[in-house]
Design a protein around this nucleic acid. Structure first.
Lengths: 217, 217
DNA sequence: TTGATAATCTATCATTGCTAGATTGTCAAG
DNA sequence: CTTGACAATCTAGCAATGATAGATTATCAA
């Protein structure tokens, strides 16, 4: 976010005032992000203009630039909300499962349901440019949470958790994208998910070791 | 593309002239698409503006609108080129293979190589809005060719070719997208591909029938 | 009260996709 | 050869967008 904040140089009892200003500022920032998300989900990201957001929060346009460097940074803020929420959704799906394989199924279904239920949010997370950093040392924990949730349900079936999780994620993302954009027919979604799940169950372990089977449950 | 063409009302021997005009027009259209693609690949799609393209082909901006309804239609034209070319690349990868499993591997690698080698082209095909129709009755054959190439190498390993091909495609697309956008580390690409290939080989056939294995080669 | 600084606004820029309307080229009918 | 119609193309401009410069107002310590 932008730097020039101010609210320094407080005198003796100006401390509470600075706190109030900080709260107001944070609240305004949340309203910007919330408005962006609502408009994007209702009318698409093209409708999310700086002017429109300014009108929505009842401030002038330049105020937005004291919160975010540019429009893409607002998209990124929405994307981060999305990564937090999909992590929650995936963890819930996993926890409400009857077994390890069922957990895989539920998580896969939850992933697709999330992507299809919040198209604009998913756009912000994966399609629109956001300059969010992934797969690096300093990756924000919000961005790792979803990956970790996938890794959790994949772990029982493989030795190289990282690679299998990445591939599982890729398969789910690909299914979501191709279905979202009308490139594959939605009717066979269940069968495709079943295929992905079976693939992980049966061939997740890359090296000859590892419990290859006979624990099916 | 746009409608108002003209070149009718030809008299007795005006026929050759009309043909020449048609050729010139088609050539100009090709130059537009080619310029769009070159600029996009060199400087990104944001640099592909109508003015820039007009300058490139040495005509005024409105001329572009006699060829394409809008900017997205130009992106779509580039995307179609991409679908044609990826189909060729996948077929070549399949034909130069030593066996059915090796064909799977080669095609998967070729898919990823294509996506990573032509980022702007892949953007046009899968990321940017184009209103191209897929998975419908009147889908253009150029858009089916790539899918068919995938289906060809998948067929030996499954009964429900459609579903398995869709899932294979999704996995490859997901891997391409996540790697392109820096969300998974490029170093493990080979292992991820191997995982996808093994998954199809070992669990591609959904029903209990079908040649489940023992023909490995 | 005053002067400095923070907070916010008004006004404006350059760029974009797109289009209306004027202008030029082409060619068949008279 | 002229003329009138139509195709082809251009000049000029619109409205919208992201972004910013600079004026204006609020705040508060001295």
């Amino acid at each position: 976010m932008s730097r020039r904040v101010g609210l320094l140089g407080l005198g003796d009892r100006g401390l509470g005032i600075a706190e109030r200003k900080g709260r107001e500022r944070a609240g305004r920032e949340r309203r910007i992000v919330a408005a962006a998300r609502v408009i994007a989900e209702r009318e698409g990201w093209d409708a999310v203009t700086i002017r429109r957001l300014a009108q929505e929060i009842e401030y002038s346009q330049p105020v937005l630039y004291s919160h975010f460097d540019n429009r893409d940074a607002i998209v990124a803020a929405v994307a981060i909300e999305g990564f937090q929420e999909i992590a929650v959704a995936l963890r819930e799906a996993a926890s409400g499962s009857t077994g390890r394989r069922n957990a895989l199924e539920n998580v896969a279904m939850a992933y697709l349901a999330f992507a299809l239920r919040h198209p604009a949010l998913y756009d912000a997370m994966f399609i629109l440019p956001t300059d969010l950093r992934f797969a690096e040392a300093g990756t924000r924990p919000e961005l790792r949470a979803g990956f970790d949730a996938l890794a959790a349900v994949v772990t029982p079936f493989c030795v190289d958790v990282g690679v299998v999780t990445e591939t599982f994620w890729a398969a789910l993302h690909g299914l979501a994208e191709l279905e979202r954009s009308g490139r594959i027919k939605p009717s066979a979604r269940g069968e495709r998910i079943a295929l992905v799940v079976r693939a992980i169950v049966v061939s997740g372990n890359s090296s000859p070791a590892g419990g290859s089977s006979h624990s099916v449950e």
